[in-house]
Design a protein around this nucleic acid. Structure first.
Lengths: 195, 195
DNA sequence: ACCTGAACACCGTTCAAGT
DNA sequence: ACCTGAACACCGTTCAAGT
């Protein structure tokens, strides 16, 4: 807020004429940036799973550079036109994959939530640390784990930390898609509208 | 930091003798709270999927009350003894489900990441808003969506927002488990240790 | 050697006062 | 009626000075 106000050569109070609070500002900025989300040259021809990995990947990579936006998007679900367009595209691809409608409805939510979380995780990490010091702590803890207390952790060892962020991301999305495709929705316990 | 220091009748500077920064303090507090994570009365007898839904559910419910901790856990992976014990329990259950070791290794990460994200999402929402005003914005946007611009959103309609947080959470975890069980890991592109 | 008061450099938000 | 300076109520972190 203050940074933007300074950029505009005014006091921070002036911004509150246009937005109610920081989250609302973030939502507006995010929707603007979402206009840039992949033009998807071959979205129609590619396999639907690959298309979704790419689409969600480009959504995530936009957010990684702006962890503050990712945080806001996680907490206050965006509802701007470009976000809705993204939802629409994800839904279209899920349907193309033959996913039943009820699972498309819940699946789009978990896919976007997950993509947003990954962006927040990586984005803040990049902002905070110089590389190499990075996940040091967890890696050390895992390597020091004794077979007495944590036998399974020791057995799996370095594989717990293997892979690049990109290869993990692709696997994560495919896991979600496969799971969505084969996990029936629970019956809706009656909730009189929604809760 | 300042709140804790005040509680201890001293200045905030004194805390920096014991912790390097806020994230480290958060990590220590979180690990302490993780000591309370479900004693799991029937973890051995229950179906492994049910046991995991409950275990991750109790992890999440601890974090929901403290969104600040969830945020830290998302950004700086915890590495305390109680967190490792949680990882160990999740791994044990995944193996009991017959999940191959390499997918257990990557699966525990996505499960805990997801549980942490859900806690952050719900926790901050509870903190910020009075109920009812809640997701109003997205709900309105969806209902106002015109069939021209967003045909699939309109077709799915209210089902996009149906379900209770609990029923969604259970479905989400089952989606992840089913996906993990059936999605082969990509080959590790060579990374000389890790990156 | 160990601890900490006071300061530094920030935040988001409000509201009375100005034009 | 519309905008905003100045203040309010916070943060996390540092460091010189005290014991």
């Amino acid at each position: 807020m203050r940074r933007l106000a300074a950029e505009l050569d005014t006091g921070p109070a002036s911004l509150y004429v246009y937005v109610a609070n920081t989250d609302e500002l973030h939502a507006a900025v995010l929707d603007e940036m979402l206009g840039l989300v992949g033009p998807a040259p071959d979205e129609v021809s590619a396999r639907w799973t690959d298309a979704l990995v790419r689409l969600l990947g480009s959504y995530t990579s936009i957010l990684v550079g702006h962890p503050g936006l990712a945080r806001s998007a996680l907490v206050t679900r965006p509802s701007g036109p470009n976000y809705l367009a993204l939802v629409e595209r994800v839904l279209t691809l899920l349907r193309r994959g033959g996913i039943p409608d009820d699972r498309c409805a819940w699946g789009v939510d978990i896919l976007l939530l997950f993509a947003t979380s990954i962006a927040l995780e990586h984005g803040t990490r990049l902002k905070a640390m110089d590389p190499a010091e990075d996940e040091e702590a967890l890696a050390r803890a895992i390597r020091q784990a004794t077979a007495n207390n944590y036998p399974t952790i020791v057995a799996l060892g370095d594989d717990l930390l293997s892979g690049t962020p990109q290869s993990r991301f692709g696997w994560h999305i495919r896991v979600l898609l496969a799971g969505i495709a084969m996990t029936p929705r629970p019956p809706l316990d009656d909730e009189h509208g929604r809760s």
